[in-house]
Amino acid sequence: MNGEATIEVNGLRKRFGPTAALNGMSFTVRPGRVTGFVGPNGAGKSTTMRVILGLDAADEGTALVGGRPYRCLRDPLRHVGALLDAAALQPSRTARNHLLWLAHSQGLEARRVDEVIEQVGLRSAARRRAGGFSLGMRQRLGIAAALLGDPPVLMLDEPVNGLDPEGIMWIRGFLRSLAAQGRAVLVSSHLMSELQGTADHLIVVGRGRVIADTGVADLIAAASRGRVTVRTLAPERAMAALVPTGAAVTVTGGDTLTVSGVPAERIVEFLAANAVPFSEVAAHRATLEEAYMELTRDAVEFRAAGRETAR
């Protein structure tokens, strides 16, 4: 499965009028893990996915699935499963019939339709019209469609958007199990928190290009940068004690300071030596969200500024 289970995106550029939607987007999605594709709205995630799937044409660059452009794939749903828009359904067609025409287009048997229906837990609703489905059911149906061809590559655009917590839990577990089977799974989101606990690897994008292509653990470590939070009822005295040691100290609350440049053990020493009372000294561990905010801040600010000047 591994040879086929890759997505290679190389130097994609695409303009919509004056806006550059993709500005040299390049990355590789590898098999056996869930790759989060994250960035603020408008960063080019959906456009990149549509280019990979041959729906949109890029002005420049290539996007290959298993080494080939999507359009050259025979029975493409056996190579790539994609969920772009769960609402894209003919409302009067039943869920099963929706999957059935997709199956027929790939030379798949109706038996396979029943298998994926079972897999996503839609059996009881399979013969109901898709128009009456809740968002969660539509997402499940969309995932069933993506799984239909048992593809080595899966691409899901904002799959947890609008789901209830139970649905989110289900999708997370499901995606992890798909990756564990050796598939390449690319999941986009504009909220890092949605990917926390799901993604093994992250591709962070902003302004149509990749900002970071990194493992989740590395990203958090980089964002933490050895900061320490000190909780004290005497912040002024604590500052007076810590500044001479060369630490950078900022007041981050009425009774909290954030200290960097000095390890937590030394901070405890200094505070004790100067008899500064404190209730907590904790090494700060950045959340994925914070790391993401830090990475994308520039991209977002730039976009906002750019929009203003455009007006």
Binding site: R50, L53, G54, L55, Y70, R71, L73, P76, L77, A82, L84, D85, A87, A88, L89, Q90, P91, L102, S105, Q106, A145
Partner: peptide, 18 residues
């Protein structure tokens, strides 16, 4: 046109990209 209206045309083209 129903496929365009529902966004289903994309699904159709995913299944048959030519």
């Amino acid at each position: 046109t129903a496929e365009y209206r529902r966004g289903l045309m994309r699904t159709t083209l995913l299944a048959g990209p030519r």
